[in-house]
Design a protein around this nucleic acid. Structure first.
Length: 290
DNA sequence: TTGCAGGGGTCAA
DNA sequence: TTGACCCCTGCA
């Protein structure tokens, strides 16, 4: 992957393949990116606000530095991975192939673990627009301001920045019962009872167990965190859409989530998470009509 | 206007 | 295994 600085704050990444900003940012894995009128995307991750513009195979990153491109954005956007290999892996599966055609260019982002954890705790029994709203409000309350042009965005707060926050302080977020879960997550992360860095290093099953020590983190939320921020490509989050999809396409109406997970491992193996994201996106956008 | 169902689930019994 | 859960949105 090659890139160069066009000027002091603008990077050009060339030869970008199998990548689409809209599908990547709108497929439900992240909550902090917004489309501008010209089709570019502005948002914030790892405390840095940037704008992405994709023209053919050329990705332009505005408001950045050479170091940040090297150390953050190439990895964040998963640009170092060969997605043609993923595509080839599922060439024989007509449903995943169709879903990959539809959601072409979805990349699985490598997000910050803590941000991902709290965001998906908030996502339970919730709708995406509302999740985005709550995450934005939490960031504005406790995160650092970061300017891009004349717009101010707020970084997702660190665990340290949420150290003294109590559930009642979060009432204005209208996150409901999830406020207690956020407080529990912060406490366990800060005390070291749950070590988020260790989660990245542990094998999948152990990492999942570790995350599920946190209140409000069940199998689905844990799998989202593992897939979207911890490099566990075998994680296969089973939500209502994926449940419907797997029952419709590969199993029967009575299949339990546990059976679905096992089936996913059998069918999709080490890259199950990629299959999940494409199946999920297709299913949700097409109301599970295959 | 009011009422109800459901939302990328999880907890507790 | 099942019902309750905070709060919001969409739709009769």
């Amino acid at each position: 992957m090659n890139f160069y600085m066009k000027d002091a704050t603008t990077a050009i990444v060339s030869d970008v393949e199998h990548f689409n900003l809209t599908h990547t940012f709108m497929c439900g894995q992240c909550f902090r990116w917004y489309e501008n009128e010209d089709g570019t995307y502005t948002g914030i991750a790892y405390g840095k606000a940037v704008t992405f513009e994709l023209n053919g195979n050329k990705l332009t990153i505005y408001n950045t530095t050479e170091d940040d491109v090297k150390n953050i954005w190439l990895d964040y956007l998963d640009l170092n991975r060969d997605y043609s290999h993923i595509k080839a892996t599922y060439a024989k599966d007509k449903y995943v192939s169709a879903a990959m055609e539809f959601g072409y260019g979805i990349h699985i982002l490598n997000q910050d673990v803590f941000e991902c954890l709290i965001s998906f705790i908030i996502s339970t029994q919730n709708q995406i627009p509302r999740i985005k709203k709550i995450v934005a409000a939490l960031s504005e309350m406790y995160g650092k301001a970061c300017k891009i042009g004349d717009v101010t965005l707020y970084a997702f707060p660190t665990a340290e920045e949420l150290k003294d926050v109590k559930a009642e302080d979060l009432a204005s977020l209208k996150a409901g019962y999830r406020a207690d879960y956020i407080v529990d997550a912060v406490a366990k992360v800060l005390s070291g009872e749950v070590d988020l860095q260790k989660v990245k290093l542990l094998p999948y099953a152990e990492a999942k167990k570790e995350l599920m020590k946190i209140k409000g983190v069940g199998p689905k939320v844990a799998d989202c965190v593992l897939l979207f921020s911890s490099g566990k490509s075998e994680a296969f989050p089973v939500d209502v859409w994926v449940q419907r999809t797997m029952r419709t396409l590969y199993m029967d109406e009575k299949a339990t989530n546990r059976q679905i997970e096992a089936k996913a491992t059998e069918l999709f193996g080490k890259y199950a998470g990629f299959a999940q994201q494409y199946l999920f996106y297709y299913s949700r956008e097409n109301s599970n009509n295959w």
